[in-house]
Amino acid sequence: MDALKSAGRALIRSPSLAKQSWGGGGRHRKLPENWTDTRETLLEGMLFSLKYLGMTLVEQPKGEELSAAAIKRIVATAKASGKKLQKVTLKVSPRGIILTDNLTNQLIENVSIYRISYCTADKMHDKVFAYIAQSQHNQSLECHAFLCTKRKMAQAVTLTVAQAFKVAFEFWQVSKEEKEKRDKASQEGGDVLGARQDCTPPLKSLVATGNLLDLEETAKAPLSTVSANTTNMDEVPRPQALSGSSVVWELDDGLDEAFSRLAQSRTNPQVLDTGLTAQDMHYAQCLSPVDWDKPDSSGTEQDDLFSF
């Protein structure tokens, strides 16, 4: 819950932080000083300027060897085509990944977070970031790969997607708890209302004896509580940590079903599988986004697919 609360507080303090972009060759504004600060901008989305290598189908939802083989196929196909790589912007948030063309600003792909089953910074092609997700059109699994400016960037994108998945799962947990509370309150309110109706004398007997209905007592009954809980029953509950912020979080049926399955089948359902080692994760978390744009010590960066 700490990640969720800190993310909400950060967004309320400075929503404009989320509009910064990394990996864009110096076009961005001043960047936060450390990885923790940038992680807090996830709610509205972190932007990464990358190059799209392509996509291939895979048979399993996750796995280092599986993704490595898929990336190898994608890279080989991209090299064989001889075409310049498409420059894209990857927007990562707890909602998922939005992929747009840098030149036309046209939407290429919009992947809900619950469809993503794996992401990684490839070991062999260490400047490549990739994720595996279920197609929104059918049940097939797709591996999408992107060329980053350097290994640090690939690791940073991988960690960002993993963190977005974690925050999304926490949102789901909060929403589920809130819905259970509202359902319980609604049920209790309905029981109270039913009890009051059972003990209320029939209207005919009131008229016969000349008694008047006590409207004041009726007004004191917990009807307002019942209506408050039943009027918006169809509205999706939102985490309290975000009250007053500009973010509107809505959970669709697909996300609810997917996270429910994860909660039942996995020990740590909030953790998205990645190909990063503990050492890689520690190294990337210690980086400032400013470091992502620094040239690798191995030599001059080449803006070309064939540089790796």
Rank of each mutant, 00 (worst) to 15 (best):
C148M: 01
I116M: 05
Q155V: 06
S307D: 07
V92F: 01
G82K: 00
F146A: 00
D191S: 06
K204S: 07
N110G: 15
L223T: 09
V192K: 03
N34R: 12
E177H: 05
A70T: 02
R9V: 07
T209P: 14
D293A: 07
A154F: 00
V226D: 09
E142V: 15
S265P: 03
W35N: 03
E64G: 12
F169S: 02
Q197G: 03
L31I: 15
P202H: 11
C199T: 05
E142W: 08
V271I: 12
G254F: 07
K181D: 12
D291N: 12
C148H: 01
T41E: 12
S243W: 07
E65S: 05
L50W: 00
F48Y: 08
T158I: 10
I97H: 01
K62N: 10
D183P: 14
H144V: 10
Q60V: 13
L213T: 12
A164M: 01
E64A: 12
K87N: 15
G210W: 06
G244I: 06
F306A: 06
A219D: 15
D214G: 14
V88D: 01
Y131I: 04
V271A: 12
T100R: 06
S260I: 10
A145F: 00
L215W: 08
A162H: 02
T225C: 04
D252S: 06
L85G: 00
T56K: 01
M281E: 05
A10Y: 04
A228G: 06
K123E: 15
I71Y: 01
Q285W: 08
L57A: 14
R238N: 08
K83E: 12
T89P: 00
T230C: 05
K62G: 03
L276I: 03
A228W: 02
I113F: 03
S260D: 05
E65H: 14
T38C: 11
T149G: 11
S93T: 11
L212T: 03
N138V: 14
S21R: 15
G190N: 04
R182P: 15
R9Q: 09
L251N: 07
S298V: 06
L85C: 01
Q136D: 12
A164N: 07
Q279P: 08
E65M: 15
W35H: 04
I113C: 01
A168E: 04
F48I: 02
K204Q: 06
Y118R: 11
D252F: 03
L107G: 00
L242P: 12
Q197N: 11
G189M: 02
I97A: 02
P295Q: 07
G25S: 04
H144D: 00
E33A: 15
G54P: 00
A10L: 08
D252R: 03
A156M: 15
G25Q: 12
T231S: 14
G8K: 15
A68P: 02
S246R: 14
S205R: 13
F306M: 11
D296M: 04
L255D: 02
D2G: 04
G254N: 09
W292M: 13
K83Q: 14
D37E: 15
A185H: 06
K294F: 12
A195G: 06
L251I: 13
T300D: 06
T209R: 15
Q264E: 01
A145Y: 00
W292V: 02
L213N: 09
N138A: 10
L47Y: 02
N102L: 15
I132E: 00
M46D: 11
D303L: 04
A145T: 01
M46I: 15
S224K: 10
A10P: 14
V128I: 01
N268C: 05
T209Q: 15
F165R: 02
A154W: 00
A228L: 03
G23Y: 10
P202A: 07
S245F: 11
P32G: 14
D293H: 10
S49D: 05
F171D: 15
M233Q: 08
R196Q: 11
R238W: 09
V167P: 03
P32L: 10
L53C: 00
Q302Y: 11
H282N: 07
L193C: 06
S265C: 05
L103F: 12
A80M: 06
Q197W: 01
L159N: 11
A258M: 07
G96N: 15
V111H: 08
A241W: 11
A185N: 10
E109H: 02
P269S: 02
I74T: 03
H144S: 10
N110M: 15
E177W: 14
V88S: 08
M233P: 12
R151C: 01
L193P: 01
L159K: 10
S81P: 01
W35E: 15
D293G: 08
A154Q: 01
D291S: 11
G299C: 08
H125L: 00
P32E: 12
S224Q: 10
D280L: 05
M55P: 07
